[in-house]
């Protein structure tokens, strides 16, 4: 895998995580991250991720990768959150 593609995917992963954890509906943590700091940081990380992807790929292909990666992450993160939450509830 191209280095810029890898950086782009990892940076977008961190950005998505920051945005998800700042949501009041997140289920990973007992308390959500402060939205005022986490959301802009997440958006910046996503922007950086897109820029990195566009270094490796042409604009259309880079944008398609970015959007599909985000869709996958934003589907997986709530499901993982629900799984963690239900495990915590089972233990307690």
């Amino acid at each position: 895998m191209n280095t810029f593609t890898l950086i782009g995917l990892l940076t977008s992963l961190l950005g998505s995580l920051a945005i998800y954890l700042a949501s009041p509906n997140q289920r990973w943590l007992a308390v959500p991250w402060p939205a005022r700091a986490a959301r802009p940081a997440g958006i910046l990380l996503l922007a950086a991720g897109l820029v990195a992807l566009l270094q490796a790929l042409q604009p259309a292909a880079g944008s398609f990768v970015f959007v599909h990666w985000l869709m996958l992450l934003f589907v997986l993160l709530p499901y993982l959150g629900a799984l963690l939450d239900s495990r915590r509830k089972t233990r307690s």
């Binding site: 895998m1 593609t5 995917l9 259309a60 292909a61 398609f64 990768v65 599909h68 990666w69 589907v75």
Partner: peptide, 13 residues
């Protein structure tokens, strides 16, 4: 497009 990583994304989506 995007090679193997995108194939996995499509598989999971």
């Amino acid at each position: 497009y995007g090679g193997t990583p995108v194939q996995w994304m499509y598989f999971l989506l």
